[in-house]
Design a protein around this nucleic acid. Structure first.
Length: 588
RNA sequence: GCACCCAUAGCUCAGCUGGAUAGAGCGCUGCCCUCCGAAGGCAGAGGUCAUAGGUUCGAAUCCUAUUGGGUGCGCCA
């Protein structure tokens, strides 16, 4: 629905227009000085600059026109020409009642929606998930929720890293360890065992060994590169082995992502587009986009306006194998064929140059216009030293370890203070899982997507203040109030809402700002904006809760109104937490 | 070398299409459960917005320079 500020902006804009000025000057926003008024408009100052008039005179004229409006109970002029606006109670109540009717809890709706593919996985086969994968998963999942709530059709693709050099490295490492395996016998081309020769745990150990070996020895690296090329060109034993790697890894990945509450609609990978590579290369050739360069085949993407050199996109390496430049381009071809309007990549921002290359190449190939492909990059999780986070031992922290740490901590907390209502108890373990994951997700999501931040374990396992559990707690309490009153959200919300107490007005005003926060989070692809909003709502509810009696208010109509406001708040908090990918327990 | 990003309270961070007294959480000090869940609420202390110039009636926000951090720069992903 239209937010309160947009409604007021329109109103004030009309007043500016009536004065012969640009209606956009009427932009109303939440005030910096809530002690003076809840909203302000600074358009008169901008207007004065453009029209070379006295800002106070303009503001005075606009004010005169606004005073007749029933939407505002007070309009004052301050300083050089600030307009301080106070919405009338009746307007606030009318909008609140509109909000009650809104099936989307006040979310912003796009006029024209799109079919979008969101890429927020990218884990490598054979490599267990670590904290580095957390941001992509969590941000991607919440962007999906935010976009869906705005009306888009969004699919998440895990886009496994399963076709590059690391696969050759694994094959070669295994070959050195167990040369007798049938997969390495070139005389055998079919009838491989169904059972995988390695487990996920084996892979987790083999992978670092493989990559270390390649780093140390050029010969080993050459072997791995050759094996990669052979795998890609279809050597049967390697393909069979590869399939085992993928299968066992996928099972582990499914478990990890499920624990996080992150879902993917598509489980594709780099290898999925293997059949598209050839037609893509032909198409590139047909358009004369492919050039030879040091034995490799590349697409030039540099432009004269570039401030720095953008290297060409490497499509085929000199040994005939393909890298991620090539598979990413082919993936865009696939996505175009699948009818997507937009492709968004939630990937570490350090890879931005790669996406510039791929997107430009794709645009040259005519797959998508450049503005339909986005790299929603995110910052690194750093340690206290400002460098990418490492454990004390210098290794990476496994995601599964982090998850057990937070859920254990949450379990301790749940054990000491959970109070379950009769009849609908959840197990303490289940609550602890929800609380722990909420802490984890909110701690990450409340940082702006693009900035690096310091990974502080204490903050991730903290349940007080600006945290996920605080939000859950607020929601649980709202539900509890309604339950104590012998009603439920659907029933309670039907009553008319009257706003008399300051904390009621404040809460209602905040709820009416949801559309602004949602829209801003959507347009900027920044979930933290929504985090700010929902935290503000929860805070405002807590204040309201301590200031106003709700379920035990004596006056029946006031009681019904307050229960309705509680139900309305609960509905919006639920909607937002759903967008963010955070679950709410029944009790905690 | 070239390009990009960052520097705001003791700590971790918001705020940046310029606007009135720069916000939050944590931590610290004090208060509030005979009343709907204290994972809560209220109050307080705490800031030369890295530095120096510039543009402007007005700059944390825009421009330039400097300092200090970080990141990226074709056969890894």
């Amino acid at each position: 629905m239209l937010s309160l500020t947009s409604r007021l902006s329109r109103l004030v804009g009309e007043a500016f227009q009536a004065e012969g000025l640009d209606p956009d000057l009427g932009l109303v926003r939440v005030s910096d000085r809530p002690d003076l008024a809840p909203f302000q408009c600074n358009g008169a100052l901008a207007a004065a600059k453009a029209a070379k008039k006295n800002p106070r005179a303009i503001a005075e004229a606009v004010k005169a026109r606004l005073e007749a409006a029933g939407e505002l109970s007070d309009v004052t002029l301050a300083g050089p020409g600030f307009l301080n606006l106070t919405p009338s109670d009746s307007f606030l109540e009318a909008m609140t009642s509109e909000l009650k009717e809104d099936p989307n809890a006040g979310a912003w709706q796009r006029e024209k929606t799109e079919k979008v593919v969101l890429d927020y996985g990218g884990p490598n086969v054979a490599k267990p998930l670590h904290v580095g994968h957390l941001r992509s998963a969590i941000i991607g999942q919440s962007l999906k929720g935010i976009m869906r709530a705005a009306g888009d059709e969004v699919l998440g693709d895990i886009h496994l890293g399963d076709w590059g050099l690391q696969m050759g490295q694994l094959i070669v490492e295994l070959k050195h360890r167990e040369p007798g395996l049938v997969y390495f016998d070139e005389s055998v081309t079919s009838g491989y065992p169904e059972e995988s020769p390695v487990t996920v745990a084996d892979l987790a150990e083999i992978y670092p060994a493989a990559s270390a070996a390649c780093k140390e020895s050029e010969g080993r690296m050459a072997e791995a590169q050759a094996a990669t090329a052979e795998l890609q060109s279809g050597r049967p034993g390697y393909r069979a082995l590869w399939q085992h790697f993928v299968d066992v890894s996928r099972e582990a990945l499914e478990g990890d992502y499920a624990a996080l509450g992150v879902q993917f609609e598509l489980w594709r990978g780099e290898a999925s587009v293997d059949p598209l590579i050839e037609p893509m290369v032909e198409s590139l050739q047909k358009k004369s986009l492919l050039e030879d360069s040091d034995g490799a085949r590349v697409v030039t993407v540099a432009r004269e306006t570039d401030k720095k050199d953008i290297p060409p996109l490497l499509v085929i390496k000199s040994n005939g194998s393909v890298g991620y430049g090539s598979t990413d381009l082919a993936t865009l071809l696939e996505r175009q064929q699948d009818g997507f309007d937009r492709c968004i990549y939630v990937v570490d921002k350090r890879q931005s140059e790669h996406f510039v290359q791929v997107f430009r190449a794709a645009a040259r190939l005519g797959l998508f216009s450049e503005d339909a492909m986005e790299h929603a990059g995110f910052g690194t999780m750093n340690g206290k030293d400002g460098r990418p986070f490492k454990t004390r031992e210098g290794g990476v922290l496994r995601l599964s370890d982090l998850i057990s740490m937070v859920t254990e901590k949450a379990l301790e907390r749940v054990r000491e203070s959970d109070s379950a209502p009769e009849g609908e108890a959840m197990s303490k373990e289940e609550i602890a899982r929800m609380v722990g994951i909420a802490a984890l997700k909110f701690a990450d999501l409340s940082n702006p997507r693009t900035t690096d931040y310091i990974f502080d374990l204490d903050r991730f396992v903290s349940f007080e203040g600006k945290t996920g559990p605080y939000l859950q707690y607020a929601a649980v309490r709202m539900a509890s109030v309604l339950r104590k009153a012998g009603t439920g959200p659907e029933e309670a919300i039907k009553a008319p809402i009257g706003l008399s107490e300051p904390s009621e007005k404040e809460l209602a005003t905040l709820l009416l700002g949801f559309a602004d926060a949602h829209r801003s989070a959507y347009e900027k692809r920044m979930p933290h904006i929504l985090c700010e909003h929902v935290f503000g709502v929860a805070q405002s509810f807590s204040k309201y809760y301590s200031n106003c009696r709700i379920s035990d208010e004596e006056d029946n109509s006031v009681r019904a109104s307050r229960l309705a406001l509680t139900a309305l708040t609960l509905g919006q908090v639920r909607a937002i937490l759903t967008q963010l990918g955070i679950e709410i327990p029944k009790h905690m």
